[in-house]
Amino acid sequence: MKFISQAILFVFLILLTAFGGGVAFSEELVGFTNLGKEYHVAVRAAEKLPNPDGIWGEVNLIYDIGKKSKPKVYSFEVYAPPIIRKAPFGLLVVSEKIGGMNGIYRVIYLRPTESGLIAIGGAESSLDNGRFVDAVAISPKWTKAASARELDSLFDSILVHRGDLVGSSSSQSFDGAFLFFSIPELMGKIRRVDALFLIDFSMVLNKTVDSSLANLIRRRFVGNQISLCDENQFDIFVCKIGKKTLAVCASNREGEDVIQYRIGRDRNVELSLSKTMSQRIFDSHELGVFERGEYRYIVKYGDNVWQGVVVEKSGITISKQQCEVEMVEPFLLPNK
Rank of each mutant, 00 (worst) to 15 (best):
P50L: 12
Q260M: 15
P184D: 08
F76G: 10
V328Q: 02
V311A: 11
L198Q: 04
L246G: 06
F174D: 11
R162Q: 11
R162T: 02
V136E: 10
A250E: 06
K313C: 10
E291D: 12
K97N: 14
E47Y: 13
S227W: 05
D230S: 13
S319N: 14
V238P: 00
E96D: 07
K320T: 15
S125I: 07
T317N: 10
K189D: 00
S314F: 04
K48N: 09
E326P: 00
L205Y: 02
P330V: 08
M327A: 12
S278H: 12
V59M: 09
E294Q: 15
N224R: 00
S314L: 10
V43G: 03
V328M: 04
L49I: 14
T276I: 13
R267C: 09
Y79E: 09
A46S: 14
E58Q: 12
P71C: 07
K244R: 13
S182M: 06
I104G: 05
E58P: 01
W306Y: 12
S115P: 01
I226Q: 08
C239E: 02
F25P: 02
V43T: 13
L117M: 05
N60M: 09
I108S: 07
H161F: 13
V166K: 06
G31R: 05
I158V: 14
S157W: 03
F3A: 05
L110Q: 06
S212W: 06
N60P: 03
N215Q: 15
V269K: 00
D164S: 15
N34Q: 09
A7R: 14
L196I: 07
G99P: 06
P184Q: 10
V325C: 04
K320P: 02
E312T: 06
E124L: 08
T33K: 04
P81G: 05
C249Q: 03
K48L: 08
S69V: 14
R267Q: 13
P81I: 07
K189E: 02
N304E: 13
L271W: 04
S319Y: 04
G21M: 05
V299L: 07
F89P: 04
M187P: 04
E231C: 01
W306D: 15
L333E: 08
L92H: 05
I4K: 03
F178E: 00
C323G: 10
E47P: 05
K189Q: 02
L127C: 09
S173R: 03
F331L: 15
A18T: 12
T17F: 14
I84E: 03
D164C: 11
Y39P: 08
Y297M: 07
T17V: 15
N206F: 15
H40D: 05
F234G: 04
F178I: 02
L13P: 04
S251D: 15
C229R: 01
T317Q: 14
Q172P: 10
R219M: 01
E47K: 11
I236F: 03
Q321A: 15
D303Q: 10
G57K: 06
D283K: 11
F237L: 08
F180M: 01
N224D: 06
Y297N: 03
V289P: 05
I183A: 00
Y295L: 13
L213Y: 02
E124W: 01
G242R: 04
I8H: 01
C249R: 02
S168C: 10
L246S: 09
